[in-house]
Amino acid sequence: MKRLLDIEFHKFKYSKSSKVLTIIYLSIVILSMLIGVVPFNFGSVQGKVADLGVFNFPVVWHVSTYCISFLKIFIAIVIVSLTASEYSNRTIKQNLIDGLSKKELVLSKFYLATVLALIVTLLVFIVSLILGLIYSDYNDVGIIFSKMEYLPAFFLGHLVLFCFCLFAGVLVKRSAFALGFIAVWWIFEGFLNIISFVFDSKYDWNTYDYVSHILPMNAMSNLLYNPFPKISLVKETLNLIPGNGMKWQFDVSYFDVISVLIWSTLFIYWSYLLIKKRDL
């Protein structure tokens, strides 16, 4: 495993796209940390974003994982381009000839995806901890390290997307088309969501409850729900809207976790099957 990671990180380290996108990713994360001090003017309320209470423990875990998880698209692009360029440069063929087995080939990519997901999870942990320690009103150790299930959810959300990218890269073999494939699939899931929503309201079914958790990208985005309705100020504002009886869900559901785990396994297994069956 150490050897496979070593091989894969060697490729990662010397690839241009990975360098550029890692820098973009890190600079956005650091810039967004500064958001706390940005002053805002919201009707009668004035102050800094930090005063909204978004950086209070334990809410900060949820808020920062939710916000930073949007950036995973940058790393996803790296994974797609690393995988697809193995085909376009035909280095996958050379790797096999040099003595990497097909299983090792898939495993090394999977390890890279896992480690990258772990690294960004660690990063978001550190960022949230720092933000919390600076701005949080409650600094009790018990409170600080409570409600942290959003971090593993953040990790799994990244993992499933990376595995999907890996599979798309292997399937389509060209990075631009593979990214297109992912985008089309995402839209397709959104389309299914709308259809099931329409049917549900028309025939009183409840297909949406399943569709929104079973499909990979749905499950991924439902791992972390929008945390803002539970921020006190937003909550008050929402309550001002007449007839707002919406129930908000915030917890990580096991349905999504299981769905995401199954999808990750399937993507890796399918990538392996493709590589095994194909002639290069």
Partner: peptide, 11 residues
């Protein structure tokens, strides 16, 4: 082994 044309990582 070398097959047909050299395959390496371009960058």
């Amino acid at each position: 082994a070398i097959i047909e044309r050299p395959n390496f990582y371009p960058s």
